[in-house]
Nucleic acid binder design. Structure first.
Lengths: 224, 224
DNA sequence: ACCTGAACACCGTTCAAGT
DNA sequence: ACCTGAACACCGTTCAAGT
């Protein structure tokens, strides 16, 4: 399967290939062996452009996030802008299911990397436009960012399962049935929401959560 | 460093040792080599009790989460109960920084495992007591769960850095300075919140986010 | 039923050597 | 400056053999 080298090796081309491997086979699909084969080169050549695997993963994550955030969307209000950015990340995680774990790993390694400020910026500037007082910008934006990444990540599981061949409704049905089978004493709530899970719309549900937080922000700060 | 075997090998003892290794050296600290050395046994013995490394990680995660959720706390209202559960998970992630990535990995693999219903149950039953209409239980609970896990995970980064010897305020100072050094055109918001980040209290900030979502839930459903 | 431990396939990374 | 590719240390997992 080794291909002739089409272009000269470069950091950008390595990252691009890494994203392809991740999309195709998930995190375990990105190995230096697979990379050298696709790029028709040796490991040493890759190490010339990239410090190590961690840096490569960070770069792949950064590239995909940057592309997702760069998309312009029509929006009529700060609330709409937040929804648009949120959906952009939601879609990116749906297209690249490995992104969810990678993002939370990178964020939980600290806000030092380049991805954290990028995401905070693209959501936070609209929180600011909402009229939230400055002292609450960080809290309000964090709540939105954490929800968006968490919820989108959960959704990525569905995307992965569907990709693997199982039908979506079949999958939700299986999970729903599993929750209904839980102990009645210990899990009354999980059993009660199992039904709700069976035929919910992912996107709708996701946006409902965003709106819930936007409402909270609006109420606490009594906007307009 | 190999120790004499103190008790008979058992699944519980393997999981317990796995947690110790994870606490000491993070996810990369959990290897079958380290495990066999501590338990004074061979890999085959461990595979008799545990199917593979993934199952072991899931079990370690489940054990720590179960312990965290089992702690009883004084609470005077459903809101207070939610805050108590949230803080319990916050503390658990602070004590076991590897838990954050593990939890989001497990949740994003789908709500099939045992951890997802456990967390949903412990938060959701109080959402129900809040008076939220049944059709919104899942959305409201999801928003809380995703925020709690995401925010606590971000906080775990601090804990890890402090553990490594760096002073907390020194660390926040460094990140804050890094954000202030970002491009003024591209990152006006990140630069503006950098200051806020410098001397925020993690716990306070975390609970403010929980309250924001609780307010959103209360407003949307016009409770009491 | 439970454990031993050598062996296997695979991984990230290094480095002396080439151009 | 950029690339080659053999070699190294380490990993998860298997399995024939023991008790």
């Amino acid at each position: 399967m080794a291909q002739r080298r089409a272009e000269a090796l470069s950091r950008a081309r390595i990252i691009e290939t890494a994203v392809e491997l991740l999309d195709a086979d998930g995190e375990s699909g990105l190995t230096f062996r697979a990379l050298t084969e696709r790029l028709a080169t040796g490991p040493g050549a890759i190490y010339w452009h990239v410090a190590n695997k961690g840096e490569l993963l960070d770069a792949a994550t950064g590239a995909v996030v940057a592309a997702a955030l760069a998309v312009e969307r029509a929006a009529e209000s700060p609330q709409d802008e937040v929804r648009a950015v949120a959906l952009g990340l939601f879609d990116a995680i749906e297209d690249h299911p490995w992104l969810a774990a990678q993002l939370s790993a990178q964020l939980s390694r600290g806000p030092a990397g380049p991805v954290a400020p990028k995401i905070f910026e693209s959501i936070g500037r609209h929180v600011r436009d909402l009229g939230v007082p400055k002292g609450s910008w960080f809290t309000a934006t964090s709540a939105l960012v954490h929800y968006v990444l968490g919820a989108a990540g959960q959704n990525a599981a569905n995307a992965r399962v569907v990709k693997a061949g199982t039908d979506r409704s079949e999958f939700l049905d299986a999970v729903s049935t599993a929750w209904e089978a839980l102990d009645a004493e210990e899990y009354p709530f999980a059993r009660a929401v199992a039904e709700e899970m069976r035929d919910h719309d992912d996107r709708e549900q996701f946006l409902a959560g965003v709106d819930l937080i936007l409402t909270g922000i609006g109420t606490v700060h009594a906007l307009d």
